[in-house]
């Protein structure tokens, strides 16, 4: 995967079929009905049962709507994935106006993968990979790919400006 900063936003290029599959899983993870995912994305917030019930009644429905709307935005951007010439790899533009939604969506998806695959703080450490099961290792690779994209969108990685997005499109 490479990254370019264009006038319209960030371009992620040379996305392998596995990377594309991981990205297409992001909205599905945000919409997941899995109890572990819901437990992490909509966590218990108050110790007191009455306060928690108040929270569930007033705050959670709006959060659920937000996550669904965010999943739809990510899905719309993924629908514009472009095929790279002479390759099965693809190109994704994340427009500047969508950066905040993507950052949160990527975070939510990473957390969902973490809880769905019984990962631990230990397996998240650099030397934790070898101790993980094959299924967990696959989840870790997905989590790290999404983290790399988050780092780009956060500006943690310096990316030189490259002009307009059109220059990357070769039909």
């Amino acid at each position: 995967m490479w990254v370019a900063r264009v006038d319209e936003g960030y371009v992620f290029g040379d996305l392998s079929p596995a990377s594309v599959e991981t990205l297409k899983g992001v909205p599905m993870l945000l919409e997941s009905a899995d109890a572990r995912v819901r437990g992490r994305l909509l966590p218990d917030t108050c110790d007191d049962a009455v306060d928690e019930e108040h929270w569930r009644r007033h705050a959670v429905p709006e959060l659920e709507r937000l996550f669904l709307s965010r999943a739809q935005l990510v899905r719309r951007d993924l629908a514009t994935l472009r095929k790279m010439p002479k390759s099965e790899h693809k190109l994704l533009l994340i427009p500047d106006g969508h950066t905040s939604a993507w950052l949160a969506a990527l975070n939510g998806a990473r957390l969902a993968l973490y809880v769905m695959n019984d990962l631990t703080a230990e397996t998240m450490e650099p030397d934790g990979f070898v101790k993980a099961t094959p299924k967990q290792q696959e989840a870790l690779l997905r989590i790290h790919l999404l983290a790399e994209m988050q780092s780009v969108l956060l500006g943690d990685l310096e990316v030189e400006p490259s002009g307009p997005f059109d220059e990357f499109i070769i039909e």
Partner: peptide
């Protein structure tokens, strides 16, 4: 708390 949870930070009150 709602805004922090919207960004998926583990937040309690």
């Amino acid at each position: 708390a709602q805004k922090l949870q919207a960004h998926h930070l583990l937040t309690t009150l």
